[in-house]
């Protein structure tokens, strides 16, 4: 990985990036507090010219996690920006003000994981029907991934 990327991140956000994990030449994982999410994401998107690939939410049972994946196509580096949220009542600022494309994936995360995005322009269902029961989030771990044998 080009040391330049790490250096520029360090220069601009010294101490605010909680953890930097270099998995390989091509994969970089950064952890930030949710207060620092927007400035760091904005820096990767606008200054490092990272293309917003998508975001992945993960239910860890004791907390929730969102990874925002940015692809730096010229350098062939994928930066994943990680925020950890409380599992009950997870709330995160929306990235859609920085990256328009984030609005759709946040709608999906909202309906499938029950994560609230503050100041999101329209947090309605994207995949699930409008009459989906409130409070049921299919991708959370309490929902079994397939029906148990013998049960209907």
């Amino acid at each position: 990985m080009k040391p330049d990327i790490l250096r520029r991140l360090e220069e601009n956000f010294s101490g605010r990036i909680k953890e930097t994990k270099v998995h390989s030449e091509k994969r970089l994982y950064l952890s930030v507090e949710k207060e620092d999410l927007l400035p760091v994401a904005e820096f990767i998107f606008n200054s490092l010219q990272g293309r917003f690939a998508t975001a992945s939410a993960v239910d860890n049972l004791d907390n929730m996690e969102i990874l925002y994946h940015f692809s730096l196509d010229k350098e062939d580096v994928m930066i994943s920006l990680r925020v950890v949220l409380a599992r009950d009542n997870p709330v995160c600022p929306t990235l859609s003000g920085v990256v328009k494309a984030a609005a759709w994936i946040e709608r999906e995360i909202h309906e499938l994981f029950g994560i609230q995005f503050l100041q999101h322009p329209g947090l309605k269902h994207l995949l699930l029907p409008e009459d989906w029961p409130a409070g049921v989030y299919p991708l959370r771990k309490e929902n079994p991934s397939c029906p148990q044998k013998g049960k209907k």
Partner: peptide
């Protein structure tokens, strides 16, 4: 709007 074909593959 989408979801008419949603098969829950990520969950599966």
């Amino acid at each position: 709007e989408a979801g008419y074909n949603h098969r829950g593959i990520e969950k599966l």
